[in-house]
Design a protein around this nucleic acid. Structure first.
Lengths: 197, 197, 197, 197
DNA sequence: CCTTAATCGAGACGGTACGTCGTGTCTTTAT
DNA sequence: ATAAAGACACGACGTACCGTCTCGATTAAGG
């Protein structure tokens, strides 16, 4: 007699971890960050809560890890010699992170940042910083090429792009089109760094 | 000596509501938004949970109402004839909202906005919009006076100030000094609207 | 255009009381004693809770009053000269009280008797006692006629009929047919009082 | 002196269950069935409500289980060869259940039986039936010995004893003395089954 | 190859908070 | 004066998750 193959292979280590990350993103898509629970993730991953707590101290840690696992490892912008082109590329990189498949997860994390210093630090370092660094690089290369005023790329100027993109998505709740990104670059960023004529 | 006032007057309507708002802010200061609970608010306000749920559908609604109750009713900027001065005033208005006594509550709300459309709509309308309108007015008056280029105050330009302020507080976790606000105005906003010389 | 006559005549005194009694019985039939609430009665009677509490101290009091209001005022058994006939009549009187339209209310009260001395006393005096007295009278008249042994109608013998009827309905959860009542009389009660042959 | 045992051993399974049963009876004795609550039981047992609901669906179920746990496992009457003696023993068994230490709990259950079919079925099967069976056995053995008329022990005759005992305790609110039980046997039950002389 | 140690899955446990319902009291408005 | 309406403070309900824990069952690795 052939009984049903009830005994699914028991996963461990890396395989289990990946399955959990998938479960986190699926659960995020299904119920949203607001209703995300350890219990739900464990159930969807068909694992035990203890296997989650053994690896991560909190739901936040788990979500950060899952998002980081899914994000493109490196976020760089190729040098084209045209500052406007490169700025568009860098901002698109940031916008895509917020509107792509794991966008909801990312915005959830950004929104939750003020609630816990740990989350804030982790998210800043592992999600925000790499992308801002790409932008920073764009400015530095443009300054080196003499395309923008030396010293124009102050911290606030560098943060302006990310700030507007995030603000538009998070606070205003709008989608960002290609045209929007061009507007941001043309109306706000470039005027701030354009060399005196 | 008078006997102990065992029979505290039962509060109703406006008086009760104010007491609840106070309790919300006290609780926020005590445990933070992350650990804020209806139960805790009710206990601190010495009222019943049902009296909370009768008025507000959720903790979020309650917090919004409490914050709105505490915020200055109108947020306007006096016309001085100098666009830079007025911009500084408008941005300071926004920054003060985030760093003042109920700053943590406000940032909590902003952070939670992406989690619920209701919260987003309410917060946008009751907290963000009035302050952005003040800024909008500054631009319009400056345009009328010819201080800035006509048509320069596009939506993205108007949102730039708020975006940077919020981004700095929320995502970067920094305080904003007076100097910082001046930098934002001088380095980012004014260049975007300054009339061609 | 005249608006709908929203303002139903406001009831007072006797009229209101009767309406409340009706509501109690309707509610009992609808949700059972276990889920009977002051709130529900008030809503069904379209009156205010205070109008209930002004008249009765508790739900139990209200139910007792409602049941008593609905029960036949006097419960007597006509003398026929035949003790068996009269016993059948007296037991049928009791059984009908438990199985008639307000049967559920009565059994609820009997079941709840042990929970409050007040309820017990009230129910005993206003519901049980009159019916047992009718039975008692039957025995006394039969003894006077010599149909049963003098002194045979001890307290336990008198209570036997009511006890079995109530026990059958309440504990065993069975309906009582005419045949059942005959069996009780023939198999248990009459043997206990029959004169020695 | 050993340090305070802050970390009370976490109880599980059987040990926890027994502690809960104790808490139920203690709570019953303290506040009565009418004011018995899951919350109170959990607090007294120093456990969580979820541990109660995991095992029992309702307060009623819990009380039944607690009572059943406390009751003598088997309720049998030894054969003595004398039907009167055995009847007294069987009825005493029933009376003791109602007047013993957990008497209030038992009467509460009997009183609540009509309120829920589940409770009724459970109580009938787990509390009433075993004791009535003991009585049934007494009749059967007496019939086999020829002490009583064959066929005299009809269902109603068997139920007469329990009915009177329960009725006396529950409805009339009286205690039952040894003499009372003798009276019930001598005045009601024996006359119904005594062989024609 | 077989033991041994790790770790997985399952779920019980003591908690906290949830959002709802009913209580009995009290106040207000309108007959 | 009292009916109707409903707010209020309170307590309990039954549920959902939390983070901890115990307990076999499974699996990889070492002797």
């Amino acid at each position: 007699m052939t009984s049903a193959p009830e005994t699914r292979q028991r996963r461990r280590g890396q395989a289990l971890e990946t399955a959990i990350y998938d479960a986190v993103l699926a659960e995020l898509a299904a119920v949203g960050y607001g209703r995300l629970t350890m219990e739900g993730v464990a159930a969807r991953a068909r694992t035990a809560k203890s296997s989650l707590y053994r690896r991560w101290n909190s739901l936040e840690d788990l979500v950060i890890a899952a998002v980081h696992h899914e994000l493109p490892d490196v976020a760089t912008v190729a040098e084209t010699g045209d500052v406007r082109e490169e700025l568009l590329a860098a901002l698109t990189l940031i916008a895509d992170t917020l509107t792509g498949p794991i966008g909801p997860a990312v915005t959830s994390i950004l929104g939750g940042m003020n609630q816990s210093p740990n989350l804030q630090a982790a998210a800043r370092e592992r999600i925000v910083a790499p992308r801002v660094r790409a932008l920073q690089t764009v400015f530095e290369r443009a300054a080196a090429r003499g395309e923008i005023r030396a010293g124009a790329a102050t911290p606030f100027v560098v943060q302006t792009g990310p700030a507007i993109v995030i603000h538009t998505c998070l606070v205003r709740g709008l989608e960002l089109s290609t045209q929007d990104i061009e507007d941001i670059v043309d109306q706000v960023i470039l005027p701030a760094v354009r060399p005196a004529s």
